[in-house]
């Protein structure tokens, strides 16, 4: 795809905050029109910074990006006119009602006076808030706030939608409601969606393509199916009773597949090439060497495994708090500490 195409195109994007690490360190990606792109990574990995650059709220240090064919640096106004963004949990005024938010947003987006009210009602209806429209937002649940946020982002019928962690902190029901609406937007209205998330499941359910980001770099990219297939084999983790036996364990396990990294320092791990079918042979092999095990665990691939495989650290460890805080500081306008 070339940069003149619609959708989103990002090339070698860089951003560094004062006295901070590189929040975005050479990111390139492409999102086709009407596609949902899941941008997956732990806190502080650089997801929000990227979104802020793509939504024109932040100027990159290097690289370039186009949204709907417009350059995010040179054609900010055109970019803003073609995008909608729900940037974070509470960018709402608790003192105003849902309808008042709509009124404000439709007016500020420059909708003709006569269409503001019908458009607002239509959107409130669509996200299931029409009955709550005259209640103050302060009394809304987390899910209702996110849905209102989404509806506000859609006021001017944007062709590209940015959602920054739209379901963080939501209960499962609200989460799947939101998922349904987002995929409807992409499938039926052909809206391009760029969504950041910390949840593999979310990316899995929603996204056509997933990019995994860690410390400002994309470490893996592809369809969820491809990503899962890549590490689709289960991992076996064995903890020896005597740590001195680690090497002997490793030798046995090596017969069943490549070594895998493990979050537990005492464990020896292997990616089972033949899947769970190999378990019986593994145990026989260990037994044949008279090795004693403290624990024996098999688990299916998770986000942790993808992340682990690509970065050598677990997702939880990868919670890149230090860089998150500097990112938060510099992005104060739109970035709440998680």
């Amino acid at each position: 795809m070339t940069d003149t195409n619609l959708g989103i195109a990002v090339h070698e994007l860089h951003k560094q905050f004062k006295d901070g690490p590189k929040a975005v360190d050479g990111i390139s990606l492409a999102v086709a029109p009407g596609e949902i792109y899941g941008f997956l990574g732990p806190n502080g990995a650089g997801k929000s910074t990227t979104v802020h650059i793509l939504t024109t709220l932040l100027r990159p240090d290097g690289g370039y990006a186009t949204v709907q064919g417009y350059d995010v640096v040179k054609q900010g106004a055109q970019v803003r006119a073609s995008i909608g963004a729900a940037l974070q949990e509470a960018a709402l005024d608790p003192m105003l009602t849902g309808r008042e938010h709509m009124r404000l947003q439709t007016a500020l987006q420059g909708l003709p006076r006569s269409t503001r009210r019908p458009r607002g009602n239509e959107l409130l209806e669509r996200v299931g808030l029409i009955d709550a429209a005259d209640r103050r937002v302060g009394s809304y649940s987390g899910g209702m706030k996110r849905r209102l946020d989404l509806a506000l982002a859609l006021v001017h019928e944007p062709r590209v939608l940015f959602l920054d962690e739209p379901t963080t902190g939501l209960d499962p029901q609200s989460r799947s409601d939101l998922w349904r609406e987002v995929s409807r937007l992409a499938r039926e209205d052909g809206v391009t969606v760029f969504l950041t998330t910390q949840y593999l499941e979310e990316a899995d359910v929603l996204a056509d393509h997933v990019g995994i980001i860690s410390r400002g770099r994309i470490v893996a990219e592809g369809t969820p199916e491809a990503l899962k297939a890549e590490i689709g084999r289960p991992t076996l983790e064995v903890v020896p009773v005597d740590p001195a036996d680690r090497q002997r364990f490793a030798d046995v396990l090596a017969r069943f597949g490549p070594a895998a990294s493990s979050a537990k320092p005492s464990a020896v791990a292997v990616l089972l090439e033949d899947g769970a079918d190999a378990l019986a042979s593994v145990i026989r092999g260990i037994d044949a060497d008279s090795l004693r095990m403290d624990s024996f665990q098999v688990h299916k691939p998770t986000l942790d495994d993808v992340f682990l495989a690509k970065t050598g650290e677990s997702f939880a460890q990868g919670d890149q708090g230090a860089s998150a805080s500097s990112e938060d500081e510099s992005l104060q306008p739109a970035e709440a500490p998680a």
Binding site: A77, Q332, P333
Partner: peptide, 16 residues
């Protein structure tokens, strides 16, 4: 409060 909640960013994304 508007800065903190991101309300200002929301406005900045409109033609306002």
């Amino acid at each position: 409060k508007d800065v903190q909640t991101g309300f200002v960013s929301r406005l900045a994304l409109t033609p306002t």
